[in-house]
């Protein structure tokens, strides 16, 4: 029956106003029921998609290699380290193998925090999963994960355990997930960081080549140390950001930009973040999960002001001795 036939049905004309009213009410009730069911099924979907934790299986159970403690990429920064004593202030942590300098910058309505990191041995730059469990939707607060791993400095990671399960996961020398979703940031055991394009990512081969960490969120923020002017990302608006930068083996930085807080910090676009890393002199920089997730810790305290109090994450990147 066509719509015309339905709405011009002579039977309809014969219906009393009461019947019309009743039919309209029934239709309204049916549509409201459908709407309610849409909401209900969305909640059930969300529950399975990103609320109920599911433990994954690792691919390898032991690191494919030992991080060579003789090959210390950070040896050339000897003057940055202490002579054996531990120097601890509000914004500096300095020992004979690690130096983390925290800086807060407030400029042009944007507040960001920079942790300038020098490490003697690459094994001091580590990753940790929430509850030490590799899985889907297994989450915890960045500070809590950092504290449980005695982190000197930490930032949220790439939130590997949420979303489409397509991201590459190599953590502390162990290959957990051999897939890639866009460009992957790989840290090798000799301290070199590289961006590996999605189509060239081969977890097993990279592990053989000494891949120590692989984070997969993106995008990559620099090209040969130069800022990018165009990003094809849909999340290019001003937002809270977390990113990691690489200067040279043994020298890295964590950056967290606060955002969505008028009067304090609006956040950064990808272009602004890219320009920031160029100005810092990084060779390479990579965007990690941002928004409410963006959190930086230093010596067991959150140093930034996460939007709406922040939220739990599935993994962190941290410095520890």
């Amino acid at each position: 029956m066509s719509y015309n036939a339905i709405f011009n049905n002579p039977m309809n004309e014969q219906n009393s106003p009461n019947q019309h009213k009743r039919k309209r009410k029934t239709l309204k009730r049916l549509l409201l029921t459908d709407l309610f069911l849409i909401g209900l099924f969305l909640c059930i979907f969300a529950l399975f998609h990103h609320v109920i934790p599911i433990r994954y299986h690792k691919i390898d159970f032991e690191p494919a290699f030992e991080v060579n403690s003789d090959a210390n990429p950070g040896d050339k920064f000897a003057s940055r380290f202490s002579n054996g004593e531990t120097i601890l202030t509000q914004n500096l942590y300095r020992t004979e193998s690690v130096r983390v300098q925290l800086t807060a910058v407030q400029k042009d309505g944007i507040t960001y925090y920079l942790e300038d990191i020098h490490i003697r041995n690459i094994r001091d730059l580590r990753s940790a999963f929430a509850e030490d469990m590799y899985g889907k939707s297994v989450r915890d607060w960045t500070l809590s994960i950092a504290a449980s791993h005695h982190a000197i400095a930490a930032i949220n990671g790439d939130n590997y355990g949420l979303g489409n399960n397509q991201s590459a996961v190599i953590r502390n020398g162990i290959l957990f997930r051999d897939r890639a979703d866009g460009d992957v940031l790989v840290l090798f055991s000799d301290g070199i960081m590289k961006i590996i394009p999605e189509d060239l990512f081969d977890g097993n081969k990279l592990i053989q080549e000494g891949a120590y960490q692989a984070w997969n969120f993106g995008p990559s923020l620099l090209k040969e140390g130069k800022a990018l002017k165009i990003f094809e990302s849909r999340i290019n608006k001003k937002n809270p950001r977390t990113a990691i930068g690489y200067f040279e083996p043994g020298h890295y930085c964590f950056v967290v930009v606060d955002g969505r807080q008028a009067g304090y910090s609006d956040g950064m676009t990808m272009v602004e973040l890219s320009a920031l890393f160029e100005s810092l002199g990084c060779e390479l920089a990579y965007n990690l999960d941002g928004g409410k997730t963006s959190v930086m810790t230093f010596q067991d305290r959150v140093v930034n002001k996460p939007f709406a109090g922040g939220r739990e994450t599935t993994d962190i990147i941290y410095i520890s001795e």
Binding site: D34, L35, I38, F41, L42, F45, H49, H50, N159, L162, G163, N164, N165, Q166, F217, R234, I235, D289
Partner: peptide, 18 residues
């Protein structure tokens, strides 16, 4: 209705893989 919601959310946050 559910797919429309996923489509809209996906525009904002593709990483969630809805």
């Amino acid at each position: 209705g559910m797919l429309l919601v996923f489509f809209v959310i996906d525009r904002f946050n593709q990483k969630m893989g809805f």
